[in-house]
């Protein structure tokens, strides 16, 4: 039962991250996802210090606020003439440092382990259950991640057309009257929420892997956005199942193993994708070369 809960949590994390990650990849903001996932650390710690407990809601709020602040700072620095990659680098390292310093200074009050923040402890998920009305409702993490996943499904589902247009052609979207900036911040809010809901399970850094890798893999396999979204969620589930198996075989971190599996899946897609894979391209090139060789003498 426990392993089932762990796999379910992992699958939910990977699917919800992969789902939003598709949009990040299409908008070339993968590193912004990385930045947000690092930068929410101070938000989590401050929410912790204020609420004094590990309640999910204050953490979600704190993280969402800091996540939006990160995006805002990056944009502000970019507008004042700093290159965007440097702006991302300066912002997230600064915020992450603030978080680490806060954790270290209030180590007694804050029941947060830095290792746990970095690579999560999905193995303890089944024991941290949520009781409601005296009933055991199952692991809290499942509810948190599942809830956030539902929210992002709902928001993206409602505004799918707008998100799609903003991802592929922001100028056109602005021209037809879609508030591009609003959707940008909406997406970033969803990313922050998902990140913080997932971070307990997989840790701040591996969230990035879940955000980027399934989406990138799906991007190599299809040319249609909604297919890409489904594939990335499916890959997330695969990562979770195989990652859990790998981790129990090696007796290592489950989150790390999930990332490693996602890396392997990406490598497979990179090599063998029917249209964009390296092998398919090589075969196509060879065919063209052979054709050329056959047609050339004929033309002379």
């Amino acid at each position: 039962m426990n392993s089932l809960w762990i796999m379910l949590t992992g699958a939910l994390v990977a699917a919800s991250c992969g789902f939003l990650g598709c949009f990040l990849i299409l908008r070339r903001m993968a590193m912004l996802g990385d930045a947000i996932s690092h930068a929410i650390l101070p938000g989590i710690v401050i929410a912790f210090l204020f609420s004094g407990s590990r309640e999910t809601l204050p953490m979600l709020i704190g993280a969402a606020v800091v996540g939006l602040l990160t995006v805002f700072f990056v944009q502000l620095l970019h507008q004042s003439g700093v290159k965007s990659d440097a702006a991302i680098g300066v912002t997230f390292t600064a915020l992450f440092s603030v978080g680490v310093v806060l954790v270290s200074l209030y180590a007694q009050q804050v029941d947060l382990d830095l290792d746990c923040v970095l690579y999560g402890e999905i193995a303890y998920v089944p024991w941290d259950t949520w009781e409601w009305g005296g009933m055991d409702m199952g692991p809290r993490a499942v509810w948190a991640v599942g809830g956030v996943f539902l929210i992002s499904l709902l928001v993206v589902g409602l505004f799918f057309k707008q998100f799609k247009l903003c991802s592929f052609d922001p100028a056109m979207a602005a021209a037809v009257g879609i508030p591009v900036l609003l959707f940008h911040y909406l997406l970033m809010t969803l990313v922050s929420l998902t990140t913080v809901a997932s971070f307990e399970s997989v840790g701040a850094i591996l969230v990035v892997a879940m955000l980027v890798v399934p989406g990138a893999t799906a991007y190599l396999l299809t040319d249609r956005l909604h297919v890409m979204l489904f594939i990335s969620m499916g890959i997330g589930v695969l990562c979770s199942v195989f990652g859990y198996m790998l981790a129990s075989w090696l007796d290592s971190s489950i989150a790390g193993a999930m990332t490693a599996v996602s890396g392997v899946l990406f490598l497979l897609a990179f090599l063998f994708s029917p249209r964009h894979g390296v092998v398919a391209k090589a075969i196509a090139q060879r065919r063209v070369r052979v054709q050329n060789r056959q047609t050339k003498p004929a033309s002379h």
Partner: peptide, 30 residues
Amino acid sequence: HSRIKEDTALALTLSVFFGIGIVLLTYIQH
């Protein structure tokens, strides 16, 4: 060699390598 842009490639490589590192690290610790 693929249509993946550089920033995605960066984030992807970074996180996968780190994930493998975490697997190895916890394997060593355990």
